[in-house]
């Protein structure tokens, strides 16, 4: 199957021609399949935020190409604009982009820009609000009267309402409390299961996304350092730590247990998996003479 979105040798220079010139990303070859859930990790300044802004054409690469369904997204202005709606991008702290009088109008901003009719807009706004758990009665309130967590949900709904084929979220849980974090991730996963879209989650915290993603891409100094399923990536805990990233604690525990001689699988990196593996092992041991 052809990837839904991919990049070829992407390179981006910031502040070209000034003393502040620096390479943000260089030689990025990335591709995502339809329906995949991908986690992008890397510490601050690793180029991950710059990278995702290329995927919907907000930033133009200094060199290299971005392909959506095999088509260059910078082929013409019309194509770029079209791709904006197909590749939804939720920025970091998206609550600061809210501006309308009511929550409803704010969520409707994207669909209205798509020139959909009133009825379609209404369906999408209500649908998106439901996905992120924003109650019906909040829709007529001013977005500025909501709590921080609710504002974040409204902002995410504003992008979901465009029903993009690829949904990219930059640190969607930054600054939220643990329960808020979990519920936003759950909401995103529910949206994924319902629509079958591709999800790209950007974060610097492994714990948070390890459970939910199919694939992890590690960014370091503007390049892709690792790309693989989480269990593969977590095996390189030394290298990850060297670039300022941590691996889930459970994965460290599992590794230590392996060193102590327990036949624990490499794919153990969440509490549930560890519990299952350890119980299975004990059951196996009890069954033996």
């Amino acid at each position: 199957m052809a990837p839904i979105i991919s990049t070829e040798n992407l390179r981006h220079l910031y502040s070209e021609g000034t003393p502040f010139e620096h390479v943000a990303i260089d030689g990025i070859n990335f591709s995502a399949e339809k329906g995949e859930i991908i986690g992008i990790i890397g510490h601050t300044g690793s180029g991950k935020s710059t990278f995702i802004q290329h995927l919907n054409g907000l930033l133009k690469p200094t060199s290299g190409r971005v392909l959506f369904n095999g088509e260059d997204i910078f082929a013409s202005k019309a194509v770029t604009r079209e791709v904006r709606f197909k590749v939804g991008l939720v920025f970091q702290y998206p609550e600061y982009q809210l501006f309308e009088e009511t929550v409803y109008k704010d969520i409707a901003f994207g669909p209205k820009n798509m020139k959909l009719d009133e009825e379609q807009v209404d369906i999408r706004v209500r649908g998106a609000a439901e996905f992120v758990g924003v109650d019906e009665e909040l829709l007529e309130k001013s977005p500025f009267d909501l709590s921080g967590g609710q504002k974040r949900r409204v902002a995410i709904a504003g992008v979901m309402a465009m029903q993009p084929d690829v949904l990219i979220l930059d640190e969607p849980t930054a600054g939220l409390d643990p329960s808020g974090r979990d519920s936003i991730i759950t909401n995103i996963m529910r949206y994924h299961d319902a629509t079958g879209c591709t999800i790209i989650l950007v974060t610097h915290s492994m714990e948070e996304i390890a459970r939910s993603v199919d694939r992890l891409v590690v960014f370091n100094k503007g390049r892709i350092m690792m790309d693989g399923v989480p269990s593969e990536v977590f095996e390189h805990d030394e290298e990850l730590r060297r670039v300022g990233l941590s691996v889930p604690e459970v994965s460290l525990v599992a590794k230590r247990l392996r060193e102590l001689g327990l036949p624990l699988d490499c794919s153990v990196y969440t509490v549930e998996q560890a519990k299952k593996a350890l119980l299975a092992m004990r059951g196996g041991a009890a069954g033996a003479p």
Partner: peptide
């Protein structure tokens, strides 16, 4: 710049 990008991502022109 950031808000502009965010609104552009929602199709603002």
């Amino acid at each position: 710049d950031k808000i502009m990008s965010a609104q552009k991502a929602r199709g603002a022109n």
